[in-house]
Design a protein around this nucleic acid. Structure first.
Lengths: 250, 250
DNA sequence: AAATGGATTTAACTTATGTTATAAGTCAAT
DNA sequence: ATTGACTTATAACATAAGTTAAATCCATTT
C-alpha cells in the first residue's frame, strides 16, 4: 500500500533472490532494481557437489546465489575440512575481493546451483552511483559478520547438541527471511558428514547429537529435511539470539 | 623512491595507524590522506578493561583503533564468553553498521585504548568521493573475513595446542604488518583466561597447551610477551596459512 | 614488610568427544 | 531384482578436554 502510493514497486517473486532480499529492507527505485537485475544477467548453472571457488586460485568474480545452496569451506592438507558458512539464495560470495588475488577459501555447490557471476568492479560502481543499493550491500556485509560471530560462539563455546540446535535455528531464520521454509520444516540438502564439518564435530558424534535432539522430541528428521518440533526449547538450550538475524529483517 | 617521483607522500610514522595500514597497499593522494586523517580527529581514551560496545545497545559509531588492543566478544547468559576477534591499531570496529540498530557483539579494551570515533555516514561518504579509499576499506573488510575464516577453522578443526600455535602465528603476522613486533616477540596483554575465551578452551586446558608448546621448545613465555622460537614448526603443527594474511600486505 | 587479590601452574578426577568397526538403510545403475 | 557406493545408525573403546581444588607466583595497596 505505501509502496503504491510512493510509486515504488515492491520487488515481486519474479525478481532475483538478491533484489527480493534487499527489497525487504530498503525501498529501491525502479532504476536501482533494474540496475541490480541487470548485474545478474550472466547466470551459470553449477552441478551439485562441484567446487566453483578454489582456495589459492585467482578470484576475480563476485557470485550471487540465485537458486540452491552453497558452502564456503577450508580444507587442511591432512583432510580435515571446516565449513565456514552457508550461502543461500540472495547471498553473495566474494563481495569484497578488490586487490585480492587469491581466494582464502573454497566454495562448493550443496545442491544444483544457479549463480549470477559479476565483475567485482561493477559492485564498486554501485557504491558510487546508487547510495541506496550501496547501503543494502553494506547491510549484507554486516549480516555476514553477525552470522560469522554466531558461528564462532557455536564452535567455541557450545556443546555438541547445543551446536546442532543453534545451527538449525540459524538456518530456519535465514530461510524464513527468503520465504524458503514451510512452517518449521527445513530443507537439509547436506549429509551428516557436511553437518559434522559445519559444527566442528566428528561424523559419529554429529549423528549422536542428532539422536539426542530426536530423543528429546526437539526435532523430527527425515531423509532430506528436519522439523523443529519445539523452537523455544531449542532456543533455550542453544542460547540462540534471534536478534542477530532479525535485526536484519526490516 | 617511486612515490617521490610521483609526488605522492608515503604516510609516515606521524600518520594514524589506519592511514599507515592503507598506505601499505594503495597509493593515496594528499587529499585522501588528509580526509582520512580528518575523519579521525575525534579521539577518545578508553581505560583498560572497559567495555566500549555493548551487545544489544544502539551502535551508531564507527571506531578506528588508534593505539592499543581491543576484543570483540559475545557473552552467553550463563557466563560463557567467546572472543570473536582482536582489533589492533589500524583496525576498524563497526565499519558496516548502516541500518543496524543494535550491536550483535560487545567490545572491550584489552589495554589502554585510543579510539577515533567516526559517524558511519562519513564512511559512506568515502565510497562516493574517494574510490581509492573505498577500495582500501573494502580490502580491510576482505581481510576481516579471511581472519574470521581462519578463526573458524581454528575452533572447528584444530586440537588445543594447534589452536594456540595458530592463533599466535596470526597475531605475529598481523602485528608485523603494523610494525609492532620485535623479532619473534609478541606482546601478550591478555590473560590466559582471555586466551581461553579466544580459543574456545577452558582456562586449565589453555595453560596445559601453553606448557605443551613450551616443553616442545616452540615458544618462550614471559609475563606479558611470547617469543616464537620455531616459526616453521609452529606453522606445520597448526596448518597455518600465511597467504590468508600476506595476500593483504602489498 | 605484610596483606590482599588476581593470575598462573599443576594434580586428580570426570566427562565429552573422537576413533574404529560393523551393520543396516537408501538410492542409482545395471 | 542385484549390485555397488554412499549414507546413516550404533556399539565399544580410546583420548582430549573440562572441572575442581590447591599451591605458588606477582603486582599493588596498606
Amino acid at each position: 500500500m505505501p509502496s503504491e502510493a510512493l510509486d515504488i514497486p515492491l520487488p515481486d517473486n519474479a525478481s532475483s533472490a538478491l533484489v527480493r532480499k534487499l527489497g525487504a529492507l530498503c525501498l529501491m527505485s525502479d532504476e536501482e532494481i533494474t540496475f541490480m537485475e541487470g548485474l545478474q544477467n550472466h547466470i551459470v548453472d553449477i552441478e551439485k557437489g562441484r567446487d566453483f571457488v578454489e582456495e589459492g586460485s585467482d578470484l576475480r568474480t563476485t557470485c550471487v546465489i540465485s537458486e540452491g545452496w552453497a558452502v564456503r569451506y577450508i580444507m587442511l592438507e591432512d583432510g580435515r575440512r571446516q565449513i565456514l558458512s552457508y550461502a543461500l539464495p540472495g547471498d553473495i560470495i566474494g563481495l569484497h575481493i578488490n586487490f585480492r588475488a587469491q581466494a582464502t577459501y573454497s566454495a562448493a555447490a550443496l545442491t544444483p546451483l544457479k549463480v549470477a557471476t559479476i565483475d567485482p568492479r561493477r559492485m564498486t560502481e554501485i557504491s558510487q552511483k546508487f547510495p541506496v543499493l550501496a547501503a543494502g550491500l553494506s547491510w549484507c556485509t554486516a549480516r555476514e559478520f553477525a552470522i560469522l560471530g554466531d558461528q564462532t560462539v557455536r564452535l567455541g563455546r557450545l556443546a555438541a547438541p547445543e551446536r546442532l540446535a543453534h545451527f538449525l535455528l540459524e538456518l530456519w531464520h535465514r530461510l524464513d527471511l527468503i520465504n524458503e521454509v514451510d512452517g518449521t520444516w527445513i530443507d537439509m540438502p547436506m549429509t551428516q558428514s557436511d553437518l559434522a564439518d559445519t559444527l566442528g564435530l566428528s561424523l559419529v558424534h554429529t549423528n549422536r547429537s542428532l539422536k539426542t535432539l530426536r530423543d528429546a522430541n526437539l526435532v523430527t528428521v527425515t531423509r532430506d529435511a528436519v522439523r523443529l518440533d519445539d523452537v523455544n526449547a531449542l532456543m533455550n538450550m542453544s542460547h540462540f539470539n534471534p536478534d542477530h538475524l532479525t535485526e536484519f529483517s526490516i
